[in-house]
C-alpha cells in the first residue's frame, strides 16, 4: 500500500522532524507492505487547507494540529487543555474515542496524537508583576494573539490579544509592538525570539495537539496488515515522541535560563487559579462549539475524564 502524506510545518521545526521519524519507522517496518510518501509541507498544500485535503482524498494523510480543523472537530480542545499526554490518553481509551469522533464528524481516521505533553508558557519582555493575591498583573502587557490561547487570556485576564501576521512577530517583539507572547516549551530559540524575551511565567499550561489524520476511505482500503503496522508504529511513536520532547523541553528551558531568561513563578492558589483558568476557558470553548454540532455534548464529560489526570 502507498500512502501520500503532507505535514503542516516546514522541516526546520522539531515537530516536522518528529513526524518524519515516524515515517521512517513505518517505511522500515512496512517494507513490501506499506509505504508513506511525503509530498511536502505547507509549500505543497497550505497548512489550513491540509485537513480538507485529507477529508476530500487529495492526499491520504496529514500531520497537522487539530486546531486547524477545530470548526469540524471542536473536541480537539480535550487535547489542548489536557494536563497529561498521549501515553495516558491512549491507555484509557481517550484517543480511541477521539478517533471515533474524527471518523463520524470528519471522515478521517485519527491515527495518533504525537509530540503530546509539550506545554505552553507566557514569555514577556518586561518583568511581569503580580498583584496582592499573587495573580499575574496584565496592565502594560501587549500579548501576541494566537487562536490556541486567546480564549484563556481573554477570560482570565480580560485582555484582547494583538493580531499580527507570523512574519511580523520578530519585528514586533524587537520594537515592542507586542511585549508578550505564548509559545511552546520547545523552539523559542529556533525563532530567535529569545533575543527579546527576558521572562518566563510559570506554571506552563495546555498541550500541543499535533497528530496524524488519514482519509477514512483510504484507511478502509488498506490491507489489515498495513493498518496494523501503521497503528502499531503510531502508538509507539506517541510514547517515544512524548518522552523525547519532555526531555528536550527540559533541556531547552535550562538552556534559556542559562542564557539569562528569568522565571516568574506564580505561587500556591494563584498558580492554581492560573492553571484552572487556562483549562476552564478551553473547556468552555469546547462546550460552546460542540453544542453547534448534531452530536452535541455527548462525549464532553468522557473526553475531559480520559484526557486529564484529575
Amino acid at each position: 500500500d502507498q500512502i501520500n502524506a503532507v505535514h503542516a510545518f516546514p522541516p526546520s521545526l522539531i515537530y516536522t522532524q518528529s513526524f518524519l521519524e515516524f515515517v521512517d519507522k513505518v517505511n522500515e517496518r512496512g517494507e513490501g507492505v506499506v509505504q508513506i510518501n511525503v509530498r511536502g509541507g505547507p509549500e505543497v498544500i497550505g497548512l489550513s487547507e491540509q485537513p480538507d485535503a485529507v477529508r476530500n482524498g487529495v492526499v491520504d494523510m496529514a500531520y497537522t494540529a487539530a486546531s486547524f480543523y477545530a470548526g469540524t472537530v471542536p473536541e480537539r480542545d480535550a487535547m489542548v487543555a489536557s494536563n497529561t499526554n498521549a501515553i495516558y490518553a491512549r491507555e484509557n481509551g481517550g484517543i480511541d474515542l477521539l478517533n471515533e469522533i474524527h471518523q463520524e464528524k470528519m471522515g478521517t481516521y485519527y491515527l495518533g496524537w504525537f509530540d503530546s505533553g509539550v506545554s505552553y508558557n507566557f514569555y514577556t519582555i518586561d518583568g511581569p508583576s503580580v498583584d496582592g493575591e499573587g495573580n499575574l498583573n496584565v496592565s502594560g502587557l501587549r500579548l501576541r494573539s494566537n487562536p490556541v490561547y486567546d480564549a484563556f487570556f481573554q477570560d482570565y485576564l480580560g485582555a484582547q490579544p494583538i493580531s499580527l501576521p507570523t512574519t511580523d512577530v520578530y519585528a514586533a517583539l524587537e520594537r515592542g509592538v507586542v511585549n508578550a507572547t505564548g509559545w511552546t516549551q520547545i523552539g523559542l530559540k529556533d525563532l530567535n525570539w529569545d533575543r527579546f524575551l527576558n521572562y518566563r511565567v510559570d506554571p506552563a499550561f495546555f498541550s500541543t495537539d499535533m497528530g496524524v489524520i488519514v482519509n477514512l476511505d483510504k484507511w478502509n482500503q488498506l490491507s489489515e496488515e498495513s493498518q496494523q503496522i501503521l497503528q502499531e508504529v503510531a502508538i509507539e511513536h506517541e510514547r517515544d515522541s512524548a518522552e523525547q520532547l519532555a526531555e528536550l523541553a527540559k533541556e531547552q528551558q535550562a538552556q534559556l535560563e542559562a542564557d539569562g531568561m528569568q522565571v516568574i513563578t506564580l505561587e500556591g492558589e494563584a498558580a492554581q487559579r492560573f492553571s484552572d483558568a487556562a483549562r476552564d476557558a478551553t473547556w468552555e470553548r469546547m462546550r460552546g462549539q460542540m453544542e453547534r454540532h448534531p452530536m452535541g455534548l455527548e462525549h464532553y464529560d468522557t473526553l475531559i475524564e480520559k484526557f486529564n489526570d484529575l
Binding site: I45, G46, S48, E49, G57, V58, P165, D168
Partner: peptide
C-alpha cells in the same frame, strides 16, 4: 476534488495580512 482543493488553496493564499 483537485479543483475544490485549488479554490481552497487560493482562498488561503489571498486571505493573508501579508
Amino acid at each position: 476534488t483537485g479543483i475544490l482543493q485549488m479554490l481552497n488553496n487560493g482562498f488561503g493564499a489571498l486571505s493573508s495580512f501579508n
